[in-house]
């Protein structure tokens, strides 16, 4: 059964199982959709209690290439509610270094989710990135093709 799968499918299958079985708080994966297409997952994320995003819920889309995990996943916020955050553009693109330059195969979907949760949780003022309007107009559809000028990580 597993032998017919490519290494990246084997890895994704394992990650999916553990995310279904043991998801981090506030995070859940659309298992049915992911099982149909292992290369594209939708993940639901709840704003953590006690943060500016409490009560909100978001959707993240993960797209994987067959080079995963040697190549980072393409991660964007999708759906009707995009969090207003200094590192999140209104088109859903996220400015987070582990999604591009600092990606390592030792990271995982779960690790990315936890980073995004903590990125949202540490926000002190709901605000769009300063160059939002311009970026959204001109950027490539794939956020991985953007050279991110990483904003101050403490925001």
């Amino acid at each position: 059964m597993t032998s017919a799968m490519s290494p990246s499918e084997r890895r994704l299958q394992k990650e999916l199982m553990s995310l279904i079985k043991d998801p981090p708080p506030g995070v859940s994966v659309d298992a049915e959709q992911a099982e149909q297409n292992l290369l594209q997952w939708t993940i639901h994320m709840e704003g953590a209690t006690g943060t500016l995003y409490e009560g909100e819920s978001f959707q993240l889309q993960f797209k994987f290439s067959n080079k995963y995990p040697f190549d980072s996943p393409e991660v964007t916020f999708v759906g009707s509610n995009i969090p207003v955050h200094p590192h999140v553009y209104s088109n859903g693109h996220i400015c987070l270094s582990i999604l591009t330059d600092d990606w390592s195969p030792a990271l995982s979907v779960q690790a990315v989710c936890l980073s995004i949760v903590s990125m949202l949780s540490s926000c002190r003022e709901k605000q769009q990135p300063p160059d939002n309007a311009f970026y959204v107009k001109t950027c490539n559809k794939n956020p991985k093709k953007t050279k991110w000028w990483y904003h101050d990580d403490s925001v």
């Binding site: 597993t2 990246s8 890895r11 394992k14 040697f70 030792a106």
Partner: peptide
């Protein structure tokens, strides 16, 4: 019995 860092096998 080390685990593959990529596919966990």
């Amino acid at each position: 019995q080390l685990q593959c860092l990529a596919c966990f096998e």
